[in-house]
């Protein structure tokens, strides 16, 4: 698909179709934000409960636009050396030891701080790529505040300065997607530079479509029952409401167990697939009047 690699989406409607083609059913706001991200060349910050398809959206955009995905998984203690670049010290050391005695220090110095000894990490990789790239910065709320500062710098100019090599500017801006579970409030400065998308649980019809598209063998009637039960579970005040990913898991379970009718007993037997706290299970059994 050479023509597709040339640009991102050309309109929100096109975003819906193309994301749909690769198996991601986007709603209006998702499609619009995906479109704007490409058109305005701004990063998108996606927040929402776990398992509503935040990471999946970035992957879907990658597939739909024929770009390549560069992923930076954030965690506590992530630093510049892991996110941006690092010098390959061991290789540099080898190079120095292997150099013959006649070589001047200047030459060696120029030699060991060259491309050959640079280890590019996700952020730098994404900036240096010439082809269309989606940069996924996953679970950005897990990092420390210092990394946020680093991201700010990279995301506003898309350039990185390496003292020994000079400034590297991106020839083609990557489309940046940041995801967050909101366990920590991100800084205003970072938020200001991003478009914001809050993904939430979908409505019943859309969820049924998602489940059916992900689990092909599922009977339409069972899907309807399943989505309605999940919807009712989300209305209860649970510690962890079932996510879309869990609905899909549930559907797969039903297929595996060859359950063709989601009776109360079937629900009670398989509830553990969608609810992960024992108090939640108790509550659901009570509220949905299930017998155990």
């Amino acid at each position: 698909m050479p023509s597709r690699t040339s640009s991102w989406f050309s309109s929100p409607a096109e975003a819906v179709t193309r994301l749909g083609d690769v198996g991601y059913l986007a709603d209006d706001s998702t499609a619009l934000t995906s479109y704007l991200a490409g058109a305005l060349e701004k990063p998108v910050l996606i927040e929402g409960p776990a398992g509503v398809g935040k990471t999946e959206l970035a992957k879907a955009i990658t597939r739909a636009t024929g770009a390549e995905l560069v992923r930076l998984q954030c965690y506590e203690g992530l630093d510049e050396a892991r996110a941006l670049y690092e010098w390959n010290y061991k290789k540099q050391l080898l190079r120095i030891q292997a150099a013959n005695d006649g070589q001047a220090w200047e030459e060696t110095h120029d030699d060991i701080f060259s491309e050959e000894f640079l280890l590019t990490r996700p952020l730098l990789t994404a900036i240096r790529r010439e082809e269309p790239t989606v940069l996924l910065i996953d679970e950005v709320d897990k990092t420390d505040v210092e990394v946020e500062g680093l991201l700010l710098e990279v995301l506003s100019d898309f350039q990185v300065t390496i003292p020994e090599l000079g400034t590297m500017t991106s020839t083609r801006r990557p489309l940046v997607v940041l995801t967050s579970n909101a366990t920590r409030e991100l800084s205003e400065a970072l938020k200001r530079r991003c478009l914001y998308l809050h993904l939430d649980y979908p409505d019943a019809d859309r969820e049924r479509e998602i489940v059916l598209s992900q689990v092909p063998g599922l009977d339409d009637k069972v899907a309807r029952q399943l989505v309605s039960v999940v919807g009712r579970l989300r209305e209860l005040e649970l510690k962890k409401a079932p996510s879309i990913a869990e609905s899909v898991d549930w559907a797969r379970t039903l297929i595996a167990l060859e359950i063709t009718d989601l009776s109360d007993k079937a629900v009670a037997d398989t509830l553990g697939v969608v609810l992960k706290h024992s108090s939640d299970v108790d509550r659901a059994v009570r509220e949905l009047r299930l017998k155990r």
Partner: peptide, 27 residues
Amino acid sequence: VTALGLIGWTDRQQVKEAYAATLVKRA
């Protein structure tokens, strides 16, 4: 404003979503 320049003023829902995506940064 840039976003609205791109999508136009024809669809109210889209105008709203464009405003939301650019201005509202907390759920």
